[in-house]
Amino acid sequence: MKNLKIAHQLFALVGVLMAAFAVAVYFEIKSQEDSIYNDRFDMLRTQVESGISILDGFYQREKSGELTHEAAQAQAFKVLTNMRYNPNGYIFGFDFHVIQLINPSPVNLGKDMSSQVDKRGTYFSKELVEKGINGGGRTVYYWNKPGMPDSQVFLKGSYSAAFQPWQIVLGSGVYMDDLETQVNAAMWKAFLICGIVFVVGIGAALYFIRGISKPLADVHEALKAVADEDVKIAIPHTSMGNEIGKMAKATASLQEKVRERHAMAERQAEQ
């Protein structure tokens, strides 16, 4: 660094600041992305917890003797099967052996879904049950969307949690491709801001660097001229109030001493 020109050192400083800004933008994008997805999963968790509360309500009626075990489960399953929320959300449920017990579609009711895989090989039904048993959690997988070609798959996220008294895991999931659109929009906005700041920063850096390096070069040339005993050259930038101005004043002072020495030499020659 000691051997670098001041202009190059200033450019290096600007580069470091720009890199730091880019890193800050990256973490801001990641923070926004996490926030967007967390909001969606929080909504899913709220729906699942509502379903768990419904199961618990019927379980309490079973414990009190108001309903038999079979009747309590049948009524609870019916309520959960009819639950809906926006956008196109519903509740599904499995027992701890991944047998499907609750779903608006009766196609797979009573079937073992442990071997069900998504379009990329994820055993998502099994994972939903495992995470539910272990305290609740998120599962992401890829699935077809109604009305879209079978060759297209879309990101889907689910949250699952267990109701231990009946050994049932409830879950709910929604497609999340709309969130990818939001994240991409946030990324492009951040990149645009970063680009504008970068261009403005480079422009400002060039302006200020030129404001330093050009006067320094001028004073350096004047100092070289004074060293060659040029007493006629005008010393530039002596009016500046910064370090460059001090250097210019010192050069002017040196020039004045050279001028005095020349005058003394001329007087001595005349004698």
Rank of each mutant, 00 (worst) to 15 (best):
K2P: 03
L13Y: 12
V14D: 00
G15I: 07
A19Q: 12
K30Y: 08
K30E: 15
S31I: 02
Q32M: 10
Q32V: 10
E33L: 01
D34P: 02
I36F: 02
N38W: 03
N38F: 00
N38S: 14
N38C: 01
R40E: 13
M43P: 03
R45T: 01
V48R: 00
E49C: 04
S50P: 02
S50N: 15
S50W: 06
S50V: 10
S50H: 10
I52C: 06
S53A: 15
I54F: 11
L55I: 06
F58M: 07
R61E: 06
R61I: 00
E62H: 10
S64R: 13
L67W: 07
A71Q: 14
A71H: 10
A76C: 07
A76P: 07
R84Y: 03
P87T: 11
N88V: 00
Y90K: 11
F92W: 14
D95R: 05
V98P: 01
V98Y: 03
V98L: 05
I99R: 14
Q100G: 14
L101V: 05
I102W: 04
N103C: 09
P106F: 07
N108C: 04
N108E: 13
L109Y: 11
V117D: 04
V117Q: 11
K119P: 03
R120K: 15
T122N: 13
Y123W: 04
Y123T: 04
S125W: 05
L128M: 15
V129Q: 03
K131Q: 12
G132R: 05
G132Q: 09
I133H: 07
I133T: 07
N134S: 15
G136V: 07
G136T: 08
G137L: 00
Y142Q: 13
W143H: 14
N144P: 13
K145P: 11
P146A: 09
P146T: 08
P146S: 10
M148V: 09
Q152F: 07
Q152R: 02
Y159W: 11
S160W: 06
A161E: 12
A162H: 02
A162N: 03
A162I: 05
F163T: 01
F163N: 04
Q164G: 06
W166S: 04
G171S: 15
S172N: 02
S172F: 01
S172H: 00
Y175E: 01
M176R: 05
M176I: 07
D177S: 12
T181Y: 08
Q182Y: 04
N184C: 05
A185E: 09
A185L: 08
A186F: 03
A186I: 01
W188Y: 13
K189E: 11
A190R: 07
A190D: 09
I193G: 00
I193N: 07
I196D: 04
V200P: 09
I202R: 01
I202F: 05
A205Q: 00
Y207N: 12
L216M: 13
A217Q: 10
V219Q: 06
V219P: 00
V219H: 06
A222Q: 06
V226T: 04
A227C: 08
V231I: 15
K232C: 14
P236R: 05
T238P: 04
S239A: 13
G241K: 12
G245W: 05
K246E: 06
K246M: 08
M247E: 13
A248M: 09
A248H: 06
K249A: 10
T251A: 09
A252L: 15
R261H: 11
H262V: 07
H262K: 15
A265K: 14
E266R: 14
R267A: 13
A269V: 08
E270N: 08
Q271P: 00
